[in-house]
Design a protein around this nucleic acid. Structure first.
Length: 862
DNA sequence: GCGGACTGCTTACCT
DNA sequence: ACAGGTAAGCAGTCCGCG
């Protein structure tokens, strides 16, 4: 590796970085600081915390002072373990300790042996020679820093102080009226539940500081414009780096290269521009700058920017002490701060859907920036190597600015969201922003197990004792039966009330006491065995309360009864409201996944009957509610999973149903919304509802789907616009005439080929690399293959734009097609089916609308 | 060899 | 790397057709 000579600037940068590092040594006394990172120092063999001090805007490291050590648990007696030479003589072995734990799976106290090790790798993580592979071990797959957090009751994201070297929790007292309000909400819940709920409130109500941070983006010289440089090789020079920080400072580091055009007027005006003759000097200066920030934000820095920098610096003869970056196998962090990689955070499906409402489709900086901020990347025609200094600096800085802005918009929403998720899941900012929802839930549950001295069960033990499902899924290949969708009554329904259960599945988990411990519990008594889950052979424990039920239940109740109402409460200040909105969104993300994880074999506490029971009780709840509605004389026109749509119910009828649900199901049924009218076809998950204010809910209709051509979407929304104005049955006739006009016009445009090609493009996401489609070759894959043949690389996750054309293949990438070859007949078919979904509910069909003939016949032979 | 009935694959959506 | 249920379009296969 270290081939070049030691950079001349090395001594000075070491001095600079040392100076900054000395600031990191935690003083004997540290004022209120927030835990944002938790790590393990392999040399010192100690866990450490990264504490963010909000007044100095700096991160301090605090090293564990309790001698906490890695360990796992075994069931064999100590004598047997002592005879096991591979353990006792293991270099990392330290000692055995006798411990008592509660085994929730079997409902009994048990004796275990704690095998304490000198370092985490001795327990597990090595290819061979790990203690956990030598015996049946418990709690051996938990990352060491997580063990540390749980065992020391540390709450990441929360404020602490250091007093005389000791770590001390800082308590922000809750206002007493708040405590009273929460107490009264909790009503007659159990002591356990109340304590938990108050603890959540303590964590979630605690203020979140402002985080000083900088975004980083690097550009690397390229030979071939389309190929991404390989960060593990780091062969090409770094030619430009931008930093944009939350105090407004912007810096661009440019490498001087032969023959590059200055282009001064294109240089960003509000940034400091630093030129470097040598790449080594650029890197040195950059390292000093990076070291001065407590938080570095990147977009894909784990896999690219920081990894490239790290490898490039070593190629340029920097030694590891000189590089302020710490590389993990899949992650990168800064030595004296933390690194948040937004690519991973925004890629998270739950975050995409529940926190950002699927506003962005492709996980690229350009797409996310455009969707959330209205600012995209600066388009460039050539490779970055060919840009002038001005163009390059502007391009690179824009990326850094977008990256920073993604953490700043809506009053630092993303930072607050990460903080809230960190507090709920007991994971550091760095971990929580990189992991998915199943790991957040796992961590929340693990933490509670430790707090109560419950043994954390092994996945294979849960399956061996509770692995069975008994219902049959509608969809082939699924493990168990899911939700019910009520057959819609086609037609137009006026004055529809939509009722739904507030967080149905979390409510079920709470009310029915579901958890891996309680489903099919080991007790022989009739009390438990007779407590059957409707529609399944499963029973639920009557003796003990499941941790999952307590945790998910309390989080649900806080969201529904506390955070959600307060996020809309106009009497609260904007700041408080927006923080509450972030919290209720964080809770939503977690609650929405809280049932699904039990049905996912990748979840550490995977327990199929828990998931199956939850869905079964959901079916029971909706079917019995529908029966009750019928018996009260109401007209149920539709329903899906947790909702029922009622045609013109009286207020008395509604109240009766809601009261009934509360009494008999112990579930909160509420009026979610009302439609002036609702248009239903015979298709499930497909409807159009007009709200009192004229706004329109569109669900599942083709006209709304993202992949369909723009031109179809336009006519579809023209139709919606007309329908939204309709007030009565009579007005539908007028509406139909207008719609007829639109459609006629539309097919004439198609016939005469009066359209822009891009408006006819389908945009379909390709989920795998084209060569991985072995069973069939769908049209978008065909188009992708044509693209590859023309030298445009296609990767999983790309959006493929193609038009339907006449001829052999049937499709062409939009870039390569012409207006003349478009298969207009196909588009007419699409027009028909898109409109049919709405029209057959209006009692019309396409032929009637367009005259007597099929539209295609107007077009002749094409 | 061709077309219709069928199944399976794929994507996008709903809760 | 949370679940199952539904719609739509197309690819591929099977079968009958003297």
């Amino acid at each position: 590796m270290n081939t070049g000579s030691v950079p001349e600037s090395a001594p000075s940068i070491v001095r600079e970085i040392r100076k900054l590092e000395s600031l990191l040594e935690t003083p004997e006394n540290l004022p209120e600081s927030y835990i944002v990172g938790v790590g393990y120092d392999g040399e010192k063999r100690q866990a450490f915390l990264k504490l963010y001090e909000p007044k100095l805007h700096r991160i301090f490291l605090w090293y564990d002072d309790t001698g906490h050590k890695p360990y796992c648990l075994a069931q064999d007696p100590i004598s047997a373990l002592e005879a096991n030479q591979s353990i006792v003589r293991h270099l990392g072995f330290e000692r055995f300790e006798q411990v008592k734990k509660y085994d929730a799976l079997r409902d009994e106290e048990i004796q275990l042996v704690r095998i304490v090790a000198k370092d985490p790798l001795a327990i597990g993580g090595r290819a061979y020679g790990s203690i956990r592979d030598m015996i049946k071990a418990w709690e051996a797959d938990i990352k060491y820093v997580e063990n540390y957090i749980y065992d020391r009751s540390i709450c990441p994201g929360m404020p602490y102080q250091v007093k005389k070297g000791k770590l001390v929790r800082v308590d922000h007292k809750l206002p007493s009226d708040m405590v009273h309000a929460v107490e009264s909400l909790l009503g007659k819940e159990s002591e356990d539940y109340r304590r938990l709920a108050l603890e959540w409130i303590r964590l979630l109500e605690c203020p979140v500081p402002e985080f000083y941070r900088a975004s980083l983006d690097i550009e690397v010289a390229q030979d071939i414009a389309t190929r991404m440089p390989d960060p593990s090789m780091a062969e090409q020079p770094i030619i430009c780096v931008s930093l944009a920080d939350s105090k407004g400072k912007k810096q661009v580091f440019l490498l001087k290269r032969f023959g590059v055009n200055e282009d001064e007027e294109k240089l960003p005006k509000d940034a400091e521009i630093h030129y470097f003759e040598k790449e080594e000097d650029l890197i040195s200066s950059l390292f000093v700058a990076i070291s001065s920030y407590p938080i570095i934000i990147t977009f894909n820095g784990d896999d690219f920017d920081l990894r490239y920098l790290w490898n490039r610096a070593q190629l340029k003869a920097f030694n590891r002490q000189q590089i302020p970056v710490e590389m993990g196998r899949e992650t990168a962090t800064t030595k004296n701060g933390i690194h948040i990689d937004l690519y991973k955070f925004f890629f998270n499906r739950s975050i995409q859907i529940y926190a950002f409402g699927q506003k962005y489709r492709e996980n690229t900086l350009d797409e996310i920036g455009t969707a959330l901020l209205g600012v995209g990347k600066i388009p460039i025609e050539k490779s970055v190597s060919e840009l002038s200094y001005g163009e390059l600096a502007s391009y690179c800085l824009r990326d850094a600015e977008i990256t920073l802005s993604l953490t700043e918009f809506k009053e630092d929403l993303v930072m607050k969201l990460i903080a809230a998720l960190s507090r709920i899941s007991f994971m550091s900012f760095e971990d929580v922003s990189r992991q998915g929802v199943s790991n957040w839930i796992r961590s929340t549950l693990y933490n509670e197990h430790r707090r109560r001295n419950f043994l954390i069960p092994r996945a294979d033990d849960i399956i061996a004792l509770k692995g069975t499902t008994s219902t049959e899924a509608v969809i082939k290949g699924k493990k168990y039966k899911g939700a019910i969708v009520v057959e819609p009554t086609p037609g137009i329904h006026f004055s529809v009330a939509v009722l739904d259960f507030a967080s149905l599945y979390p409510s079920i988990i709470k009310v029915w006491n579901l958890g891996y411990e309680t489903i099919r519990c080991p007790h022989k008594d009739a009390a438990c065995k007779d407590n059957k889950v409707p529609g399944t052979p499963h029973w639920v424990c009557k003796k003990n309360r499941a941790l999952e039920s307590l945790l998910i239940g309390s989080l649900r109740d806080l969201r529904v009864n506390w955070y959600k109402p307060r996020s809309k409460d106009k009497t609260l200040s904007d700041d408080v409201r927006s923080l509450y909105n972030v919290i209720q969104n964080a809770l939503k993300v977690i609650l929405n996944a809280s049932y699904g994880v039990f049905g996912s074999d990748r979840f550490a506490l995977y327990c199929p009957p828990v998931a199956e029971a939850t869905a079964a009780i959901g079916r029971y709840a909706i079917t019995s509610t529908i029966e009750k509605a019928h018996s009260t004389g109401m007209n149920v026109v539709y329903g899906d999973t947790d909702s029922i749509f009622l045609g013109n119910p009286s207020p008395e009828q509604l109240n009766e149903l809601i009261d009934w649900s509360k009494t008999f199901l112990k579930m909160e049924l509420e009026v979610d919304k009302r439609y002036r009218y609702l248009v239903l076809s015979s298709r499930k998950k497909n409807y159009l509802g007009v709200l009192p204010d004229g706004s329109v809910d569109i669900k599942g209709l083709t006209g709304k789907k993202r992949h369909i051509p723009e031109f179809l979407k336009r006519v579809f929304y023209e139709m919606i616009e007309i329908l939204s104005k309709v007030q009565s049955t009579e007005e539908f006739e007028e509406a139909k005439t207008k719609i007829k006009g639109i459609v006629k016009n539309c097919y004439l445009m198609l016939r005469d080929r009066r359209f822009k090609l891009e408006d006819l493009a389908f945009n379909v996401m390709i989920s795998k690399s084209p060569s991985d489609y072995t069973k069939t070759t769908p049209q978008h894959v065909k188009a992708a293959e044509i693209l590859s043949d023309h030298g445009t690389e296609v990767r999983a996750g790309d959006l493929i734009s193609f038009v339907k054309v006449l001829g052999e293949s049937g499709v062409k990438p939009v870039q390569l097609a012409t207006v003349e070859e478009v298969d207009t007949g196909k588009y007419i078919e699409y027009l028909e089916s898109t409109f049919e979904q709405v029209l057959d509910a209006l009692g019309t069909d396409f032929q009637e609308l367009a005259g007597t003939k099929k539209l295609e016949s107007f077009l002749g032979d094409n």
